[in-house]
Amino acid sequence: KFNKELSVAGREIVTLPNLNDPQKKAFIFSLWDDPSQSANLLAEAKKLNDAQAPK
């Protein structure tokens, strides 16, 4: 279960257009550290992506 959630969340995070590479890497490392938090980490990444969207 975690492997699928981890890969789905990881793929989504790397495609978020408004995150820079260090931010993406930080989220990916957090996913590896605790795969059970993949849904929460993906939600946080999406929030940050939205907040950094060009206005």
Score class of each variant (00 low, 15 high):
Lys1Gln: 13
Lys1Asp: 11
Phe2Met: 13
Phe2Ala: 08
Phe2Thr: 10
Phe2Arg: 09
Phe2His: 12
Asn3Pro: 12
Asn3His: 12
Lys4His: 12
Lys4Ala: 13
Lys4Tyr: 12
Lys4Arg: 08
Glu5Ile: 11
Glu5Leu: 11
Glu5Cys: 14
Leu6Phe: 06
Ser7Pro: 06
Ser7Thr: 13
Val8Pro: 10
Val8Trp: 13
Ala9Phe: 08
Ala9Gly: 03
Ala9Asn: 04
Ala9Trp: 06
Ala9Pro: 02
Gly10Pro: 02
Gly10Met: 15
Gly10Ala: 15
Glu12Cys: 12
Glu12Ile: 14
Glu12Arg: 07
Ile13Trp: 00
Ile13Phe: 02
Ile13Asp: 01
Val14Asp: 10
Val14Gln: 12
Val14Tyr: 08
Val14Glu: 14
Val14His: 07
Thr15Ala: 13
Thr15Asp: 12
Thr15Phe: 11
Thr15Arg: 13
Thr15Cys: 15
Thr15Asn: 14
Leu16Glu: 01
Leu16Thr: 01
Leu16Val: 01
Leu16Arg: 02
Pro17Leu: 05
Pro17Gly: 05
Asn18Leu: 00
Asn18Lys: 01
Asn18Ala: 04
Asn18Glu: 02
Asn18Val: 00
Leu19Tyr: 00
Leu19Arg: 00
Leu19Phe: 00
Leu19Met: 01
Leu19Ser: 02
Asn20Glu: 06
Asn20Leu: 10
Asp21Gly: 13
Asp21Pro: 09
Pro22Gly: 14
Gln23Asn: 02
Gln23His: 00
Lys24Ala: 00
Lys24His: 00
Lys24Ile: 07
Lys24Trp: 03
Lys24Pro: 00
Lys24Cys: 10
Lys24Val: 04
Lys25Val: 11
Lys25Thr: 10
Ala26Pro: 03
Ala26Arg: 11
Phe27His: 00
Phe27Gln: 00
Phe27Ser: 00
Phe27Val: 00
Ile28His: 03
Ile28Tyr: 03
Ile28Ala: 01
Ile28Val: 04
Ile28Trp: 05
Phe29Ile: 14
Phe29His: 14
Phe29Asn: 14
Phe29Gly: 14
Ser30Val: 07
Ser30Leu: 15
Leu31Phe: 02
Leu31Asp: 06
Leu31Ile: 09
Trp32Gln: 07
Trp32Phe: 10
Trp32Thr: 06
Trp32Cys: 15
Asp33Pro: 00
Asp33Tyr: 06
Asp33Asn: 09
Asp34Trp: 00
Asp34His: 04
Pro35Ser: 02
Pro35Arg: 00
Pro35Met: 04
Pro35Lys: 01
Ser36Ala: 07
Ser36Phe: 06
Gln37Phe: 03
Gln37Thr: 06
Gln37Cys: 10
Gln37Ala: 11
Gln37Met: 07
Ser38Tyr: 13
Ser38Gln: 07
Ser38Gly: 13
Ala39Glu: 13
Ala39Met: 09
Ala39Leu: 10
Asn40Arg: 12
Asn40Cys: 13
Asn40Val: 11
Asn40Ala: 13
Leu41Ser: 02
Leu41His: 03
Leu41Thr: 06
Leu42Glu: 04
Ala43Gln: 10
Ala43Ser: 08
Ala43Arg: 10
Ala43Asn: 08
Glu44Met: 09
Glu44Lys: 08
Glu44Trp: 06
Glu44His: 04
Glu44Val: 06
Ala45Leu: 02
Ala45Asp: 02
Ala45Met: 00
Ala45Phe: 00
Ala45His: 00
Lys46Met: 07
Lys46Val: 07
Lys47Pro: 02
Lys47Glu: 08
Lys47Ala: 13
Leu48Met: 08
Leu48Gln: 04
Leu48Lys: 04
Leu48Thr: 04
Asn49Ala: 03
Asp50Gly: 07
Asp50Ser: 07
Asp50Trp: 05
Asp50Ile: 08
Ala51Phe: 09
Ala51Pro: 01
Ala51Met: 13
Gln52Val: 03
Ala53Glu: 08
Ala53Leu: 05
Ala53Asp: 08
Pro54Tyr: 04
Pro54Ile: 08
Pro54Gly: 09
Pro54Val: 10
Pro54Asp: 08
Lys55Pro: 11
Lys55Asp: 10
